[in-house]
Amino acid sequence: MPSVMTANRLQDGAVVYLSDNENWITELASARVAEDGTQLEILQKIAAEATGKQIIIGAYPMDVDLTTGAPAAKSVREKIRAARRPTIAAVNEAR
């Protein structure tokens, strides 16, 4: 199952994803996708190093949907994380 690595950034807690060039970015659509277990292991290794360098915390792999081409979140939880905001219209308009 295609997956990406996600975590929270240590300094501000923001939701981040591992990108192609080993950066931790906030846009899920630009995250690096692992197609199989071997590829995922590589991503997990990079995440472990970033954890050791105080860049991220709580890294974990997450399944993604590739129907539109770019990775998209599947669960409600991950959709909310990827949107970087709660789902209530009033809150988002005000903020």
Binding site: V76, R77, I80, P86, T87, I88, A90, V91
Partner: peptide, 17 residues
């Protein structure tokens, strides 16, 4: 709820709304 909380199963605020 799930709009903010790491432990949540489901959203609370939209239901309240």
């Amino acid at each position: 709820g799930l709009d903010y909380c790491n432990l949540a199963n489901a959203r609370s605020i939209p239901i309240a709304e």
